[in-house]
């Protein structure tokens, strides 16, 4: 008799834990990390490791200090750290990146109650904070170690610009370089092929649904073409849009949970990104697009709430 225990539902448990999902995301980010080490050298790896360590440590220290259960084991801080490091240029001073880590973990995540309560993507807020604080360092992109600059006459011995600033001078012959990532940019965004590989892994593992990335990329293509942006197809492979669409816009906490909501979210991101790229002062608008849509997520969820099957009809 005593061996039988009565428990409340759910009785069937899935193997899909937060830890497992985050581990999948980390695995999916690895191709891009390897590519960036090949392209920019070992400082890319150093920055990533420091950022990850800082994020995990900050979360641990905060939870200890606030006498809360320690949740660093769910690996979400590791993902935040990796994504933030992917968003800085390889020449970024380490202390400046650490300010971003503090903003991401303390300001956006822990002050609002930890994983699941952050109202914006922590890594992107970290990026915004260091972007506004250290604009010069954040937009000084190192020339890839691997190769020759993508367009001969925009070369500078120390730094180069993101291809987005001279999109109108690019032709289809530069497509392989954009795909493989031998051009200026932040650590994680340059190698579109590696990011796509990671994205396919996530979709096969059913960690993310392909709706948001496809809507984002599709609407960005459509709107850049409508707004008259230079090289709409090529510009999908330049700048941070691949990293943003696959890894940041699909964050569970800060994206809608209904399918139609995901469509609205993706199209909104694409629209804002295209508008900033074509009309704005900034070369890149992915960060602003995703953060602005993050704020709208609760409303999108309300708007697209599915009606329960056989539920009462509201009159």
């Amino acid at each position: 008799m005593s061996t039988m225990t009565t428990t409340v539902s759910p009785h069937i448990r899935s193997e899909r834990t937060t830890q497992r999902i985050m581990l999948d995301v980390i695995i999916a980010l690895c191709p891009a990390l390897i590519a960036s080490v090949v392209i920019f050298g070992f400082r890319a790896l150093l920055l990533t490791c420091v950022s990850v360590a800082a994020c995990v440590l900050l979360e641990f220290v905060w939870e200890k200090a606030m006498k809360k259960p320690v949740t660093v084991g769910d690996l979400s801080a590791v993902v935040t750290g990796m994504l933030l490091a992917f968003n800085v240029p390889v020449g970024m001073p380490i202390w400046e990146m650490l300010i971003g880590d503090v903003a991401a973990i303390i300001l956006v995540k822990m002050l609002f109650g930890g994983l699941g309560c952050n109202f914006m993507n922590p890594a992107l807020v970290g990026r915004i904070v260091i972007m506004f604080s250290f604009t010069t360092d954040m937009t000084t992109y190192a020339v890839p170690k691997l190769s020759y600059p993508i367009v001969a006459n925009v070369v500078d011995a120390v730094s180069t610009a993101t291809p987005l600033t001279f999109m109108d001078r690019l032709g289809w012959d530069s497509f392989p370089k954009l795909l493989l990532g031998v051009h200026g940019g932040v650590i994680g965004e340059v190698c579109a092929a590696a990011l796509l590989l990671g994205g396919i892994y996530l979709i096969i593992r059913k960690v993310i649904k392909p709706i948001i990335p496809l809507c984002y990329l599709g609407s960005l293509l459509l709107f850049s073409w409508l707004f008259g942006g230079a090289q709409p197809v090529l510009s999908l492979f330049a700048g941070g849009v691949m990293l943003g669409a696959i890894f940041m816009a699909t964050d569970y906490v800060t994206s809608p949970f209904t399918n139609w909501g995901k469509v609205i979210f993706g199209v909104g991101c694409g629209l804002i990104t295209a508008a900033i790229r074509v009309f704005g002062n900034y070369a890149e608008g992915v960060t602003f697009a995703i953060l602005l849509m993050n704020i709208l997520v609760p409303y999108i969820n309300d708007l697209t709430m599915t009606k329960p099957l056989g539920g009462a009809v509201e009159k």
Partner: peptide, 15 residues
């Protein structure tokens, strides 16, 4: 060279 510029801008003020 060791300043956090965002604090003097609007978001820093709100924060």
């Amino acid at each position: 060279g060791y300043q956090i510029g965002i604090i003097t801008q609007t978001p820093g003020g709100f924060f």
